[in-house]
Design a protein around this nucleic acid. Sequence first.
DNA 1: GGGCCCGCAGGG
DNA 2: CCCTGCGGGCCC
Length: 507
Amino acid sequence: MAHDSIQLPCGGDGACMRCKVTPPTEETLTCSICAAPWHVGCLASKPETLASTLQWHCPDCSGDPLLPPSVATDGSSSELFVAIKAIEADESLTEKEKARKRQELVSGRVEEDGGNGKGESSVLDVLDESLNCSFCMQLPDRPVTTPCGHNFCLKCFQKWIGQGKRTCAKCRSTVPPKMASQPRINSTLVSVIRMAKLSKSNAAAGPLKVFHFIHNQDRPDKAFTTERAQKAGKANAASGKIFVTVPPDHFGPITAENDPDRNQGVLVGECWEDRLECRQWGAHLPHVAGIAGQSNYGAQSVALSGGYEDDEDHGEWFLYTGSGGRDLSGNKRTNKEQSFDQKFEKMNEALRVSCKKGYPVRVVRSHKEKRSSYAPEKGVRYDGVYRIEKCWRKVGIQGFKVCRYLFVRCDNEPAPWTSDEHGDQPRPLPAISELKKATDIFERKESPSWDFDEEGSRWKWKKAPPPSKKPANAADLKEGKRTRKAIRHSRKLSTRERLLKVGNKKQ
DNA sequence: GGGCCCGCAGGG
DNA sequence: CCCTGCGGGCCC
């Protein structure tokens, strides 16, 4: 082997910059400090034991090519490295699984097993954070606890000791000889993990699935502006914390179970200052768009703010126009002029799905709905649940085709603009003749898909209950996207910085 | 009150 | 990544 005075790592293409050959994985060493890959064959000095490869420092980082591998200075990166090596060494995993686990490690995100664990247990999350075995990154199997308070699987720990190590793999404290020779399983921890796992599986099977927005806890209680938002005020604000625990694709009312803060749910008639605040209570999540939905799944909510002239609002029922058909190029973000036909696609299709399936749609009204007497005086108000009785396309008053929807109120709470004359009784629907007159093509076909139960006080699904599961892939995609976005966002401005910024603004 | 402009959020 | 979106503040 030629020993040039300059040692070089592998380049971006994976090829060794010295011999130009792309070494196989087993001939590649990754520096535990800078994570750069190096071709073992071209190294002047190689680590001698498996253990020392785990904490190997490259010539660039060690500053001395002959320096023997020593205690890592950067605990986190070396832990990551150890964990990745552990994954790679695990023969029970396929290459695909290994790749996924590595990805999870690097991204700091652990996917829920089987895809059915979306009702994640916060208890277990906390455990995941603090109790994981530093070697395999899983909840420890037969956990042993060092005097310094770190937990490992018995097997992982024994393997480590077998390599001649006498320090804690997490904090580098010395492991007492007695513990090294005879590690004891921490039985308290065993039962804690068992209980947590049990509660997790119960939560996954139970009817109450609580969903937490990723990184939601990092958000302040009020809307905030980021560094990039240049003007003061809320025009460019990012929204604050979401207070309710319903998933973004939750249909129907938001009940007390999903309102941990107040334990009352979002009440019909509840008002907020603006769309950003409305979003925080989950009634309508998009802070500009009028329709919340997914074209292959349904629409969860709409916002009325009087954007279309031929919309009609009669309180108990109203006509709604779909989105699109307007030229929004340049900065005309809210151009009112139609310039082409709307089609049943994207959000319009989402509304159509909700119509066909009979899903309930939450409705919020904004004070901007100037032509309507049902609009709130100011801010945004939650007006309960409607169903879309019919949807169709017609030529709008601007000469282009628009998607139209007939919304009919079907909430068992009284509307905010009425006295509760019906008490606990189901609220009667608007007279069909009245609707027919207004829509001129309205015809009622079948009975609605959902209704109230015998007592008239609870939801009951007659035909098409709202999907209990999230749409395949779509939800996962969404979570993944959020995560990636959150990561990107946190790079731009850390949570701490953001909070500080909000704090400064208040002063 | 209308136009302009900004950036966030999320679907696709 | 790109595009869209019934916000919201500010300036005229």
